[in-house]
Every structure is written in structure tokens, then in C-alpha cells.
Design a protein around this nucleic acid. Sequence first.
DNA 1: TCAAAAGTGTTTGCTATACACCCATGA
DNA 2: TCATGGGTGTATAGCAAACACTTTTGA
Lengths: 224, 224
Amino acid sequence: MSSKRFSYEYPHPAVTTDIVVFTIRDEQLKLLLIKRKLVPFKGQWALPGGFVTLNEDIEQCAKRELVEETGVKNVYLEQLRTYGDPQRDPRERVITIAYFALIASEKIRIQADTDAAAVNWFDTGDLPKLAFDHATIVNDALQRLQKKLDYSAIAFQFLSEEFTLSELQKIYEIIRGGEIDKRNFRKWALSLEDIEETGEMNNAGAHRPAKLYRLRSHKRVVDL
Amino acid sequence: MSSKRFSYEYPHPAVTTDIVVFTIRDEQLKLLLIKRKLVPFKGQWALPGGFVTLNEDIEQCAKRELVEETGVKNVYLEQLRTYGDPQRDPRERVITIAYFALIASEKIRIQADTDAAAVNWFDTGDLPKLAFDHATIVNDALQRLQKKLDYSAIAFQFLSEEFTLSELQKIYEIIRGGEIDKRNFRKWALSLEDIEETGEMNNAGAHRPAKLYRLRSHKRVVDL
DNA sequence: TCAAAAGTGTTTGCTATACACCCATGA
DNA sequence: TCATGGGTGTATAGCAAACACTTTTGA
């Protein structure tokens, strides 16, 4: 059988990565999905991802798949969890390492590519039926995102280098799903060690211009 | 080649689980290691673990390997992280899903088995040189353990069903690596929703007997 | 009666929350 | 001049930290 060239003494599962990419846009938390071009689950929406090749690191694989399938790059990426139910893929045993990615919406231009028939952003409150166990993965990612808001500076990943405090507050409100008092929020934000004024102002709209801020540590995720 | 019976169209990495098992004993945080019987790293100390078989869930695999190699069962187990550096195993591409386990020291009777030449508990402050990238994995597990102390009831996993507040305090002191004020600690512990007196006392030693407590939720890990 | 661990409250500072008005700009 | 979002301070309550002595038991 010339199509089965890779042989092992013991059975080996296939290994993939899947990436849960979030952004914030139109005042909503959005999730990036692709429409599958191939079986199984052909035509259904799924997380971008794909098989780990033999000589690439798994994080590299996640980044590569993301570029290949959606055109998205330069994201904040962290490992979420590995899913290994023996039945999770109807083809063969596939273990997937899920990643969790955040990106500022201005940095993106998505485009469907080789393995995807379409790529789109979905409101996290209104997702289509997902292929495989991707609904579970998305749930876990949402929980992780919410928890991490409280003890890390992860929210800054949704903003560009320079941002106003109102923009930052909006991020927290959208992800937490509730209003936050403006004065208390600003007091808290300004007490963070690694936030600083740029000196510039954001003149946008018929209202008082807002001061611009940046992270001193250049958008690294910092434990608070 | 009769020894290579498993063939695939694309290369598949091997997948293992490795388990970082902690306990507390002799007032020290201890880690369970096995001495490798086989190459590579024959004779070196390593985390217990082994290959995922085709039809078992990865968590099942971790539990099975733990029993097989060390005789340890009924542990608290959670997934830590997946490690996939292409060079981490000299034999072939091996991706490992690391787990993180805690057990009360009284519940254990360890014993070396098929794949291990020896099994032993090591002080986490004084570990031998470890095989593969296991030193990295252990470090990650230690960090996770310390962080989780603050926002979960994970420390109870080190105790048996019934325990005294002094025993509980000791756990926190050992893992944090510092003394804690007794009155403040008790105030905090007793304010936890799911701790309750058993009514029994612990008459041990030439001193005042201590009240015994238990967790209402029977030692589930609860977010605080 | 001594040694050894169990048990017990109050004060103080910090941090989170609640809350309402003036400011600067463009249209 | 008006609509829009930007910007600011104080009072209160709840939580974390500091701190020392009495109690009960077995040897």
C-alpha cells in the first residue's frame, strides 16, 4: 500500500492543534470559525486547526494553521488544554492540543484559504453548531478568558499599542458582561505598574479628546 | 517488517502521559519519581508515565500508568500541560500530556513495577537530574500548585478525610514556604463554606486534643 | 509541674465599592 | 448651544495582617 508509508511498532494517534481565536468588535466578543471544506463534518463550522507535522513544535503548528486557514498572524497565543476522547474524531484516533488566542480587531484581515471554504467571526453568544467536540473547547476557552481577566493583563491583547482608558474599560465590560463604575475602573487601571501615558491625545468625535496610554512592558501578559 | 504493523498515510507522533505526583511527608513537599529500567535515559530518574493506547482516554492512561509503575491509585488528578518539542525524546517524536496529581501520604504504598527499576519520593528542593524535559514539567507543576493554593481548596487533597486545623495550616506553610499566623489562618479556614467539625477529637501526644474537621463536599476541589 | 500543641479577639490599614458633577470638543 | 464621551474625589464597608496569652493533655 503505497499510500501508507509511515509505519510504527505500536499504534500512534494523530495529533492536531485547534485554535480558539477571540477578538472584540462591534462591542461584542467574537470567535473565529472556519467552514470545513472536507469530510468529516464537511460544510460545518469548526475551529481552525490541523495536523502537527513531524518536525514542528506544537505552538508553531498552531500559528501555522492559523495563518494557512484564516490569514491571521501575530496573535497572543497560549495553550489551553489537550482533548483526547478516543471517539472525538470519526476517522481515527485524534488527540488535539487546543490553543487560545486573542487579537486586536484592527490587526486582522481574515481570508479563507486552502482547507477552509469560508472564515468568519461569530458572536460568542450566538454560535452555530460546531464540528467534533469544538463546542466543549470553546466553552473551556471562554471560562479561561473570563478568569484570566481578574489576575492578568490579558485584556490589553484586544487593544492596539495605544489605547484610551474608556476603550480598556469597554473590553472588561464586554467580557464580564456587566457595567463597571468609571471612576473605580480608572483608579484601578492607573494603579497598575506598567501602564503609562503616551502624552498623545485621541481626537475622535464631537467630544473631549482622551489621553492615550500604553503598556510599558509592550503588551506582554503580566500577572497582576 | 513484522515489527512495524501500524501504518499511516501521514507521520504520526507518539503520545505519552507523564504524571507529577506530589505528597507531603516529614514536613516536606515530595515528588514521586521512577528509575528508568529501559533506554533512553536508562537508570535515570524520571516522571512516571507511558504511551497512550489507541482506545483509552488520556486521563485513563495517566491513571493506568501510575498504577502500573508505582502502585499509586485514587489520586486527585488534573491536566497540567502538553509538551511537544520535536527533540524532547531521542527515539522519535513524542508529545507528552503532563498531569498533576496530589495524594495524602497515608493513602500510599508505592512499589516499583514492570517498567521501573525503582520508585521513590524526593524532596522537591533536592531533586536528582531528570530524564527528558521532565525538569521543566516539574517546575510548571510546582508553580501551578502554588498558585492554586490561593484560589482553590486543593490543599485538602493532601489530607485524609478528617484532619485538624493545625495539619491544614502545615500544608499551606510547607507549600508556600513561610509561616502563617495561627489565628488568622483559623479565621480564614473556618470561614470556608464547606468545612465542618466532625465532633471527634484527635487525642495524639502530650498536649491538648484537637478538633477534627472534614469537607462537606467530600474533598472535591472547590474554587474559593 | 512541665512540655507541647490547641484554642481564642481586637486593632489597624488597605482595598473594593458606591456615588454625581464639570470639561473639552465638533457639529 | 448642545450632544457626546472624558475626566475627577470622598465616604464607607469588608477583608487581610499584626499581635500574646490561656487551655488541655500525657509524661
